[in-house]
Amino acid sequence: MPLPDPTTEQGRAGLAALCADPAGAVVALDFDGTLAPIVPDPAQARAHPGAAPALRRLLRRIDSVAIITGRPAGLAVEYGGLAGLDRLVVLGGYGRQRWEAGRLSEPEPPAGVAEARAALPAVLSEAGAPEGTWIEDKGQAVAVHTRRAAEPERAFALLRGPLVALAERTGLAVEPGRLVIELRPPGIDKGTALRRYLAERGARSVLFGGDDLGDVPAFTELARLREQGLPGLAVCSGSAEVTELTRLADVVVDGPAGVVALLEGYADAIGA
């Protein structure tokens, strides 16, 4: 399967390095919208059926794979069918959790998460949240989804202000996404998680793939690392809902199916 041609010079250099020295390569990917299609109920999300086989092929040749997600790490492993993949690390909660070799480690969430969780029902009621709005408890964070509302974009816009105010009162950060607003602990994002993981591995090249606003820090960090001499390829899992990442990416593919096709093409290119 042929690889796509990156649209930038840095992207072409990154892809060349990934192919020339796979033993030094790290593949880092978001989960929802990148490996798994977006669905109305996040509990029903499952990775594209070709995702785990493609990653298994790559892990025969590359250094490691990191899944960097806002989800709880254990759920990403379960929903992705990823258990049993050697040299796979899942960094959940934007990097606060780590799953590796079947073991999960995480700190206690700050008090603000519990405060926000308790206050959310009243905040949504006072804001006039429409029917279909619902709360997802992620343990290390809480999120409000509007995808099930009759007018999801209108509901998202209506609730953003009150949720930002709640985050300020509880000392949390706001992470907007595809018809979801998440309140999470501050101080770490996907860019920080990516930088730390690449340093830990001593990576000599990196591919990062994402689809949503929460992935912007990782794209920004990848651009910074490339300026410092680390070759890298930025891949956007494209959608009609979020277009911001297309301007930051070297390659835009058609959703999770396109991501899997790219991973398979990379595996073919390195003889995995």
Rank of each mutant, 00 (worst) to 15 (best):
M1V: 12
P4I: 04
P4L: 08
E9N: 03
E9T: 14
Q10D: 15
C19G: 01
C19T: 15
D21P: 00
P22Y: 06
V26T: 09
V27S: 02
L29G: 07
D30G: 11
F31M: 05
L35K: 00
L35M: 06
P37Y: 11
P40Y: 01
A43F: 11
A43I: 04
H48N: 06
A51Q: 02
A54C: 06
S64G: 04
G70C: 07
P72R: 15
L75I: 06
V77T: 13
Y79C: 11
A83I: 07
L88N: 10
V90T: 10
L91C: 04
G93W: 07
G95V: 10
R96Q: 09
W99M: 02
L104R: 13
S105C: 08
S105K: 09
P107N: 08
A111Q: 12
V113D: 11
V113L: 11
A114H: 05
E115I: 02
A116K: 13
R117M: 13
A118P: 09
A118F: 05
A118M: 07
A119T: 12
P121W: 14
S125G: 10
A127R: 09
G128Q: 13
A129Y: 12
E131F: 05
E131A: 15
E131D: 14
T133P: 09
E136D: 14
E136A: 14
K138N: 05
A141G: 09
A143C: 12
V144S: 12
H145Y: 03
R147K: 14
R148T: 12
A149W: 05
P152K: 10
E153L: 14
R154C: 06
A157L: 13
L158Q: 15
L159F: 08
R160K: 15
L163D: 11
L163S: 11
R169W: 03
G171M: 10
L172S: 08
V174T: 13
V174D: 01
E175Q: 15
P176T: 07
R178I: 02
E182I: 01
P185T: 05
D189I: 12
K190F: 08
A193D: 03
A193S: 07
L194V: 00
Y197H: 13
Y197C: 01
E200F: 07
R201M: 07
G202R: 01
A203K: 02
R204V: 04
F208L: 05
D215I: 08
P217W: 13
A218V: 10
T220V: 14
T220I: 01
T220Q: 15
L225S: 08
E227Y: 06
V242D: 10
E244D: 15
A249Q: 08
V251W: 05
D254Y: 02
G255K: 01
P256A: 09
A257Y: 03
V259D: 04
Y266Q: 04
A267Y: 10
D268C: 05
D268G: 04
A269M: 01
I270S: 05
